[in-house]
Design a protein around this nucleic acid. Structure first.
Lengths: 354, 354
DNA sequence: TGGTAATCTGCGAACGATTGTAGATCCAAG
DNA sequence: CTTGGATCTACAATCGTTCGCAGATTACCA
């Protein structure tokens, strides 16, 4: 086994050194070596032999074979993560946050994209389960119908979305707080006729932000005019532009737009610019998410920064709790909401004097 | 083993059905079942029994256990990918491209970031190797010194970078062609005094683009004035701004800047704007990479689009060749260069009439 | 009918770890 | 001197596959 070594970094690196090699070199049985190496069971072996095994293992550069170990223990030290699209800049931070905390504990994260497609979501989840991941982090929207199946056995947490039933722990941004921030900001600038370009109402974020918008308006004493809320079919620039066009065609008066996310806000920029309406001179616009570069568009966008990386980290910690068998509370799990932050730039200003 | 099933999707899904279960249900030995299930060895078993096994496996929903299989075959159907930083929008497309082609063949991709840190690069590569990945795709810059070690045994391909020795297959963007595109574009607009804000010369892309710049200039009959080339310490906006400031302080005349990437170009925007120099009225600026949203900054940036997704795909295919044991050529591997594309926007215009 | 080849299937040993159980050793107390 | 308990270690089964090998069955030809 351990032969044909090659000198490097000052240690003798062999092709692959197994527990058997360590045991032989230490003059003990492999089971003893195993116990000595495992901190959990180390106490059961004589302190001298344990030390010897440890030292030999170190010297030979022994690394346990993850497949062999996993086969026996039925754990892979791998967690699966499903996102709609890794190329969407929202998700890399979530991944990075999760990977950072999981990596420290020896877990690896397997990411898969489902391209916002239910069928693909199902297939990637199945693929992940077949790989025997220890847990699942779902940032994807389309997966409700898979959840009730096999996976009921696999610890799962949701991130950036929640399920209506609260069947799984979920880490989400506090959309109510975030929308309240921009609404207050606009009100404090003097706006009263504020429009909302909502995102897809099929997605929990789209829904929540819309609700948050009317509640914020009402709470602050301005009745939200239903005519001033339009829905963009998706969280994309083109849809935002189209929705904003509808709004403008409606003839209703408004001096500010709260967009459901940054892309929709940029769509509003386009629609307004096309009609010669200036931002923020004539109407103020706010976004949501603080995507990269929205500080460099013209005008720099006032928006809400969501702590995606922290969300990923929190989701990972939550999953680790589940993995550790914290049978504590069990469902239903109230979603954990992380506080967002208002980022004021140049797309908002007091309304024009009429 | 196969018990406590639960009805769903119309099939009987059991917790975990093993080859033994299939064999028992089909009335054959597990080795026969194994052979029947494996297309490679199927021919050796009677066509009827094979059919029966297949049918039973299908009915029971048998899925081979990847750890058990991998333990035996010494393959994990997993490849590792190292990137500097997944939050850098360059890399998700590379990942997506690679994942798409590898996923089709049953491989999973494990991504790791090294945060542009040599020590971390080394540790993530070691971690990947300990996980027994079948191959490695390195998009990271800092890994030369790890390469000569253990990993010599693990098929490896480089992407978005090359190694001086051509020791590994590499898929890179054709920086020479890309820079030539922008230089020609500027020349065709009438520019003759063209500056270059280079990126870090420690990175192969920074070096290549700089060389390409002087060669393009020379080939087109304009001597590249060495005074008109400055170096940004890193591929970042602030460094680009600082370098551009140096350029402006030097007092040399120029009417166009070729920046080594989009971020540096944006830094140039800042430096120029700060001195009241208009883009493209007074000086034209070009970027490189066509990052998301550079079409929305002011003014929209003329740049070079690099086919990162295709690069990822090509890297994956190259790796598959290695994995298949195509002992064909062997090192040295001349890098494969993918053609970029010029994207003309509004940051370039004819030079001001003097 | 006997012998041999061709075709199929079963047996069992790996792969590299973990872990329940039994046996060995040693010391102290009766 | 024996016995009981502590303490440590070895044995062997197991996880779910793959695969070399040998045995069994059938077929074919002399």
């Amino acid at each position: 086994m351990a032969h044909s070594g090659e000198r490097s970094w000052g240690v003798y690196v062999t092709d692959v050194v197994t527990l058997k090699d360590v045991a032989a070199a230490a003059g003990v049985h492999v089971s003893t070596a195993s116990r000595a190496l495992n901190p959990e069971t180390r106490s059961v072996v004589n302190v001298n032999t344990a030390g010897r095994v440890l030292e030999v293992a170190e010297r030979l550069g022994y690394r346990p074979h993850p497949l062999a170990r996993g086969l026996r223990t039925n754990r892979t030290l791998t967690v699966g993560m499903v996102v709609p699209d890794l190329m969407n800049p929202l998700f890399p931070p979530i991944y990075a946050g999760a990977d950072a905390v999981l990596g420290d504990l020896g877990y690896s994260v397997l990411v898969s994209s489902d391209d916002d497609d239910s069928a693909k979501a199902r297939s990637v989840i199945v693929a992940l389960l077949e790989r025997r991941v220890d847990g699942l982090i779902l940032a994807s929207a389309h997966c409700d119908f898979v959840i009730p199946t096999r996976q009921r056995k696999v610890p799962t947490v949701l991130v950036n979305r929640s399920s209506a039933s609260n069947e799984f722990p979920a880490i989400v941004g506090d959309d109510h707080a975030g929308i309240a921030l921009v609404v207050r900001h606009l009100i404090s600038l003097g706006h009263t006729d504020i429009a909302h370009v909502a995102g897809s109402q099929d997605l929990s974020t789209g829904l929540a932000r819309r609700q948050a918008f009317v509640e914020s308006m009402n709470r602050d004493g301005l009745d939200a005019n239903p005519e001033l809320t339009v829905e963009a079919g998706a969280f994309r620039t083109e849809e935002g532009r189209a929705a904003c066009d509808h709004l403008l065609d409606s003839g209703e008066d408004f001096t500010a737009i709260v967009a459901a996310n940054d892309l929709i806000a940029l769509g509003c920029y386009d629609a307004l610019a096309h009609r010669g309406i200036s931002v923020p001179g004539d109407v103020s616009v706010t976004g949501y998410n603080d995507m990269t570069f929205v500080d460099r568009v013209a005008p720099p966008l006032t928006t809400v920064a969501v702590p995606y990386q922290e969300m990923g980290g929190a989701a990972a910690r939550q999953l680790l709790d589940l993995l550790a068998g914290e049978v504590g509370v069990g469902p239903p799990y109230p979603p954990m909401r992380l506080a967002p932050e208002l980022v004021v730039r140049e797309s908002t200003a007091p309304p024009p004097a009429s």
